[in-house]
Amino acid sequence: MAKCTIRYWAAAKEAAGTAEERVEAQTLGEALDAASLLHPDDRFQRVLGASSLLVNERPVGRRPHREVPVEDGTVIEVLPPFAGG
């Protein structure tokens, strides 16, 4: 298992109650599952589901999360939709 850092921004940070945390996983999907276990409340789940994701500064887009590999030192960023203009 790889040790990854998940960074939360804006509403994701607020819902998680932290700016970042470390999880162990082999794929992005496993990392998000680990985060969901740490934050099982509905609000976190809603924010996570609506967020864009970056893995090592690269957008994940519509790729299946279970097909995106992670390795030691991978940084996952959770970017919820931003309002304003």
Rank of each mutant, 00 (worst) to 15 (best):
C4E: 06
P59K: 09
A35F: 06
E71R: 14
R66Q: 14
E30D: 00
L32K: 00
G84V: 11
L38I: 03
G61W: 09
V47S: 05
R58V: 14
R66H: 15
R46I: 13
P80N: 05
H65A: 04
L38F: 02
E77Q: 14
A19R: 14
A10T: 07
H65K: 06
N56G: 11
T27H: 04
P40A: 10
G29F: 03
A12T: 11
A12I: 11
V68Q: 09
Q26W: 01
A2Y: 02
E14G: 02
G85Y: 03
P59W: 13
R63L: 14
L38E: 07
A19S: 15
E24K: 12
K13A: 15
E57R: 14
N56V: 11
S51L: 10
R66S: 08
E30W: 03
T5S: 05
E30K: 01
E14H: 08
G84K: 12
P81F: 07
Y8C: 05
A2I: 07
L79A: 02
L28E: 05
P40H: 11
A25D: 02
G73R: 12
P80Q: 02
G49Q: 09
R46W: 08
P81Q: 10
V60G: 08
R43I: 08
A12K: 11
Y8N: 06
K3T: 15
E30L: 02
M1Y: 02
A83I: 04
A15S: 13
I76E: 06
T5P: 00
W9Q: 10
A2D: 01
A19N: 12
M1P: 13
V23D: 05
R43D: 10
G73F: 12
W9I: 11
T27C: 00
S51P: 09
G85D: 04
V60C: 12
K13P: 01
V75Q: 10
T5Q: 13
V60Q: 09
E77N: 12
L48S: 07
C4G: 05
A12P: 10
I6V: 14
E20R: 15
F82L: 15
V70T: 03
L48C: 07
L32R: 06
G73Q: 13
L28F: 11
N56P: 10
V23C: 05
F44R: 03
I6D: 00
L54C: 09
R66C: 03
I6E: 06
I6K: 04
V55I: 15
Q45P: 02
T74G: 03
P69E: 11
L79G: 03
A2F: 01
R7E: 13
A34H: 03
W9F: 15
T5I: 08
H65W: 08
A50N: 14
G73E: 11
I6Y: 05
R43F: 13
G84P: 08
D72I: 10
D42Q: 13
V55W: 07
A50M: 14
G29D: 03
D41I: 04
G61E: 10
P40G: 10
A31S: 04
P80R: 05
V60T: 13
T18H: 02
E67A: 15
C4Q: 03
A11S: 15
A34L: 02
G17M: 03
R46P: 05
V70P: 00
R62T: 14
T27A: 07
H39A: 11
L37A: 15
V78L: 15
R63S: 14
D33W: 06
D33T: 08
E57T: 09
